[in-house]
C-alpha cells in the first residue's frame, strides 16, 4: 500500500493540505453529507491548529485528526438530537482505519472503481442511476422493470458485494 511521505515538521497550511481530504472522506464515511463534512473539517483544523503543532508522524497526525473529527461529529449529532449508537461509529471507524488510514482513502477509491466494474450490468445500472443521476428508487425500478422492493434488494446486494470486494482487495494489498 502506498502511503504519504513521512514528515517531521509541517506548518499549518501543509497540515491542512495533507490531511483535509482524508478527514473529509472519513467524515463522509461516518454519514455526513458533503457540506456537513466540509464544515466539520474546518472545525477540526481550527481546533487542532490553535496551538503550535509538532508532528511525530503522518499516521499519528491523521489518527489524531480523525479522533477530533469523530468527536465533533458525535457532538453535532447530539445537538441535532439524532440517535446513533457508538457501536455504529466504532464499526465504521474500524473499517476506515483498516482500509485507508494512511493514504487519505485514495487506494480505497481506486479499489472501489475496480470492484464496481466487476458487478453485473443491472447492478451497475442501478447504482449508476442512484448515485450519478440521483434517481429515485421508483425510477430505478421502472428502468429495470422490477418492483421497487426488488430494486432496493438489488442495490443492497450490490453494495454488499462491493464491500466484500473492497475488503478483500485492501486486505490482500496490505498483506
Amino acid at each position: 500500500m502506498s502511503s504519504m511521505p513521512q514528515r517531521t515538521e509541517l506548518d499549518p497550511a501543509e497540515i491542512v493540505e495533507a490531511h483535509q481530504t482524508g478527514v473529509w472522506r472519513y467524515l463522509r464515511a461516518l454519514g455526513c453529507d458533503p457540506h456537513e463534512a466540509a464544515d466539520l473539517v474546518q472545525d477540526t483544523f481550527l481546533i487542532v491548529l490553535q496551538k503550535p503543532f509538532r508532528q511525530y508522524s503522518d499516521a499519528a497526525t491523521a489518527g489524531y485528526l480523525r479522533k477530533v473529527a469523530r468527536n465533533l461529529f458525535i457532538s453535532a449529532k447530539r445537538r441535532e438530537g439524532r440517535v446513533m449508537t457508538f457501536e455504529q461509529v466504532d464499526t465504521i471507524d474500524g473499517d476506515w482505519t483498516r482500509w485507508s488510514a494512511h493514504d487519505n482513502g485514495e487506494e480505497l477509491l481506486a479499489a472501489l472503481g475496480g470492484c464496481f466494474d466487476a458487478l453485473g450490468d443491472r447492478a451497475q445500472l442501478a447504482l449508476d442511476m442512484r448515485f450519478r443521476e440521483r434517481s429515485s428508487r421508483n425510477e430505478i425500478a421502472d428502468a429495470l422493470k422490477m418492483s421497487e422492493h426488488g430494486a432496493k434488494n438489488l442495490m443492497q446486494r450490490a453494495k454488499k458485494r462491493l464491500r466484500e470486494c473492497v475488503d478483500r482487495k485492501m486486505t490482500t494489498d496490505a498483506d
Partner: peptide, 23 residues
C-alpha cells in the same frame, strides 16, 4: 455509509473540498 460515500465520489462526482483558504 462508507460504500455510499465512495460511490458518491466515483459515480456522483462529489469531490473533497479545499478548506485551506478558510482555515
Amino acid at each position: 455509509p462508507i460504500i455510499d460515500a465512495l460511490l458518491d465520489e466515483v459515480l456522483g462526482g462529489v469531490t473533497p473540498p479545499d478548506v485551506s483558504p478558510e482555515v
